[in-house]
Design a protein around this nucleic acid. Structure first.
Length: 293
DNA sequence: AACCAGGTCCAAC
DNA sequence: GTTGGACATGGT
């Protein structure tokens, strides 16, 4: 048994829910509020979450967590429940000195989200803040998404491609309205999001960046949060601050990203997310983020 | 009232 | 390939 853990998570897949005993590396707050996903709401004792046209409720009581849903198989994959995060955390702690960030964000799981939903969401995320992003996506879904009785599905590609810019402006998207439509139209006209699962990271990034509103940072978020490609390092305002505190001064985020991937390899995506969550939740605290070696 | 937020686009070197 | 300015919006 790895260092210091008295028990492993025990996961059971039932027909109407997922049961998780000892949810050591799965906390709803860490996973949902670490900035990778936008369609969720806090409840009294947990969260409700919508992905595509599917909903689940996460209820946490003591050492038992329940994910209640009509789609347990879908959310098992969505929450990356067959990946051993204890192993990942132990490895990056010992290799890279990430202990404070991984302790803080121990319950984070990198989600396997819908590529189209992630693509549109992160186009909206550019030069924006998370509270506004959530509101914009919410209004787009209630305006264009199918009414599922109590919640709205994420709109279809077709529906988005055929909406007018004014709708997205009214939803609050501002100048990103045209990006959303152009990108939805490109997907409609044959840009294949599914084949990127089987494409290597560099090639997949290059293709995503052909879409309007998608630069390297947004592409890397999609590669990480939808395709599960962990050899990416999205560099935003916060990661810039960390980089310039721990490494040499640099103002080009693309160069920072490349340098960070050289250092952290296939663990880049995980590390980026632990660091991002740590510094944001601790209001910009830079000291003791980690101890680079 | 400027500045900020999970940056990107475009024109001009 | 790199650089500088513009860009909707709402909250501090």
């Amino acid at each position: 048994m790895p260092s210091g853990n008295f028990f492993y998570m025990d996961i059971r897949l039932l027909s109407d829910r997922i049961l998780i005993n000892n949810p050591d590396t799965f906390k709803a707050k860490d996973t949902l509020e670490c900035g990778q996903v936008f369609r969720f709401n806090a409840l009294e004792s947990g969260y409700e979450l919508i992905s595509k046209d599917k909903k689940c409720n996460i209820i946490e009581h003591g050492n038992l967590t329940e994910i209640i849903t009509d789609y347990p198989d879908y959310f098992y994959k969505y929450f990356d429940l067959d990946t051993d995060y204890n192993d990942i955390i132990n490895t990056i702690n010992s290799r890279y000195g990430l202990k404070s960030a991984t302790s803080f964000g121990r319950g984070i799981r990198i989600l396997n989200q819908s590529p189209f939903e992630t693509l549109i969401s992160f186009i909206i995320s550019a030069n924006n803040n998370i509270k506004r992003i959530r509101g914009i996506i919410d209004r787009i879904c209630s305006g264009l998404g199918e009414d599922k009785g109590g919640y709205y599905a994420f709109p279809t590609i077709d529906k988005m491609a055929n909406s007018c810019p004014e709708f997205f402006v009214r939803a609050g998207a501002g100048y990103r309205a045209d990006y959303i439509i152009k990108t939805a139209q490109a997907i409609c006209q044959g840009f294949d999001l599914n084949e990127l699962y089987l494409t290597d990271t560099g090639d997949a990034r290059e293709r995503l960046m052909r879409l309007t509103g998608v630069g390297r940072k947004v592409a890397d978020c999609i590669l990480l949060f939808a395709y599960g490609k962990t050899d990416v390092f999205p560099v935003d305002i916060w990661i810039k601050k960390i980089y310039n505190h721990y490494y040499n001064n640099e103002d080009n985020p693309d160069k920072m990203s490349k340098k960070l991937i050289e250092i952290f390899g296939g663990y880049s995506g995980y590390i980026q997310q632990y660091l991002y969550y740590y510094i944001r939740e601790n209001k910009g605290l830079l000291e003791s983020c980690f101890s680079p070696q």
